[in-house]
Design a protein around this nucleic acid. Sequence first.
DNA 1: AATCCGGGGCT
DNA 2: AGCCCAGGATT
Length: 357
Amino acid sequence: MITPKTFSKKLLQWSKSNPRDYPWIGEKDPYKIWISEVILQQTRSEQGKNYYENFIKKFPTVRALADATEDSILHCWKGLGYYSRARNLHHAAKTILVKFQGKFPKSYEELLTLKGIGEYSAAAISSFAYNSPKAVVDGNVVRVLSRMLGMEIDFHTSAGKLKFIEIANSYLDKENAGAYNQAIMNFGAVQCMPRQPDCLNCIFSQNCFAYQNNCIDKLPVRNKKITLKRRYIHYFYLVNSKGEIAIHQRVKKDIWQKLYELPAIETSKKMEFKSISSIEKATDLFRFSRNSRVENYGKTVQKLSHQEIHASYYCLKTTHIDSKIKPEFCFVKPENLVNFAFPKILSTFLENIINKK
DNA sequence: AATCCGGGGCT
DNA sequence: AGCCCAGGATT
């Protein structure tokens, strides 16, 4: 594991040879640093650049900002998103005038009391402006440390946040807090990017846990709950007068692409088809004679990474469907079904059906 | 601890 | 279509 001292030395060295050109680089006015930090919250530098320059031009000081109307501040923020940031800036500017007598707060703790300034921004402003030994922890830092040290901790939890702040501070170069904080974030943005980081040209590749263990794309870990999509697929076991089964190849860009399936109707909500007419209402793929009957053959659920497939099986007893089913379907003899690739959700069902016969 | 806030860039 | 971004406030 790389020592904090070595890490900082190499990082600051890297920073010198990889300068970034943005209007807030090297800025020492805490007011301007503050504005830049808030603009850059969840916002890419390239996107925030012009907003920063316009904002500083229009509101060059804390007093100018405090005296402005909320409308004029929001107008300056138009199109940037997260508009509470603009309203909080206004609120905090007035706080600075009243509670801090117009003097910009210097300490991490004082900065935290301002609306719109959280742990990250307080650390950033106090270290950039005053070289206070507080480590910033943003998405870049989480990513760099996760990969370098192999930290399998989810930052988006209370405990994970504490752990990352602790580790980040243990690696912080306290003599050069501002430069170090700048450097590690730049490094994350330019070299150790979320996707396809430039490991081949990375000065830390020999020290990097993720690179050495080939798990760059696994770190940082995020246990973010994926929004589960529920799908309801109704499969119809259709037999024609020759005793053949209707099947169909899935061609859409979707799960089970190029696999075969029974004639199906997908619904987004849970339901059950109880009559021929309800089926014909839901699809134009097949039509049935009036004496047909539908019979429920049970159901099953399959969980995929992002989806939950609820399958219902129906058997259609009918006499004349041959000419009333669309040509993308074909009919195969039951004994030939094994020659086609069905998803598991269907192959299990088909095996049961055939074995019962 | 989970949810919301927003627009843009990327694969 | 999802994931991510120099996060923080609210519930």
